[in-house]
Design a protein around this nucleic acid. Structure first.
Lengths: 206, 206
DNA sequence: TTCATAATATACCACTTAGTATGTTATGTG
DNA sequence: CACATAACATACTAAGTGGTATATTATGAA
């Protein structure tokens, strides 16, 4: 009986490599910022080398663009938007998701803030490609939030005079603000008072 | 009559040089981030050279620390706190300063967001020295805001059951959130709806 | 099995970076 | 007017940077 060779059988898959690269990029950029991370550091977290990376991404910027489009935007959607569809009252859903994704999160998952907001604040003024894609992500977020709030309004959970677009914007602002404050103070416990205040705001809408 | 030599008389002043260096550092860091800016670029915006800089600041980090302590923190105080003391009703003052400093600001002064928030989001998780100083600045902001809100409460502009510390935190969160959203969308007009929502929140406190 | 080529590896390069070593000049003090 | 020294200037370095040129290997079609 020949023992199976322990050397990992080297397989090749464009998509798998792409996912590996984007995953490593996400983790590195999330903690150090886009400018603060180097291609070499990203590759160290991977079983791949420069050849693989530059085969798919012409430049570091293109890697960043893909990060926004293929990782961060979907992440926003399935953390903050998709779950809302299960609620008869989306306002309840918004509050519940905040509690779940921030209030109940582990401290180490809050230390670095919001991946989208981090990139917005760092890269928006510096690069047009980033700016466009980050704006698209923000717009999508606000739009979807507005859609849910319209449902809430139709169901009578929000007064008819209220401009739900404005509320959507304020709510997204609060999401990023929550992340930012908790990160700045290094104190997840600050979620409670912030949450209370936001509920107080919501109550003024019903 | 001898023509005066056109060569600038080279004078030396530690404090003047420090201010020059910090001013240039502020502008560069404000637009490119701390990691994105190089010592050489900072010096180009200055009449000084590396000798002058490293004579006062042992490392780039120390320059950043001084930026937070000597430029950004005072800036927060005299933009957002000191003016409030002139108002019998600090809540009015808070809203008026928001209008003045953000609502009426020129677009180019909003493009880069909030200097403090930018640094918080970029550097807080990366460096302890930054973290401590940025937290001190945030704490000062919230503390002073709380002080003003206590006055408002005592004067009867805020209901007695309201926890003003929580309100202070929420308000500072909103300041940074406003800046962040306007920066992300590149749209100063978003101040209006955000402002309206914040007023609606305040009205739930009186 | 052959073979074209897509997917990846490796070695390398020009350039930038923070920081240093060392030299020069202004300035206040006796 | 010396003169010690604080306040700078200049030239340099070692390490890291994004990107490239070129070689290698896996893969799927014929």
């Amino acid at each position: 009986m020949k023992p199976k060779p322990v050397i990992a059988k080297k397989t090749r898959s464009l998509e798998k490599s792409r996912k590996q690269l984007l995953e490593a990029t996400f983790l590195e950029v999330f903690s150090k910022g886009f400018q603060g991370v180097s291609i070499d550091e990203i590759l160290k977290k991977t079983a791949l080398t420069k050849g693989a990376l530059y085969h798919q991404f012409p430049t570091k910027l293109d890697l960043g663009y893909a990060l926004v489009e293929e990782v961060i935007t979907p992440m926003i959607l399935d953390r903050w938007i998709t779950p809302l569809e299960d609620y008869e009252n989306p306002v309840e859903g918004i509050l519940y998701q905040l509690q779940r994704n921030i209030g109940d999160a582990r401290p180490e998952d809050l230390r670095l803030g919001c991946p989208l907001n981090n990139l917005v604040q760092e890269m928006s003024p510096l690069d047009k490609g980033f700016r466009q894609r980050l704006q698209a992500a923000l717009n999508l977020w606000v739009d979807q939030m507005e859609t849910q709030l319209k449902r809430a309004k139709k169901a009578g959970h929000i007064r008819s005079e209220v401009n739900v677009r404005d509320v959507a914007l304020f709510v997204v602002m609060a999401h990023e603000g929550f992340y930012g404050i908790i990160k700045g103070f290094e104190d997840p416990a600050l979620f409670r008072p912030l949450f209370k205040s936001l509920r107080s705001y919501f109550s003024s809408l019903s």
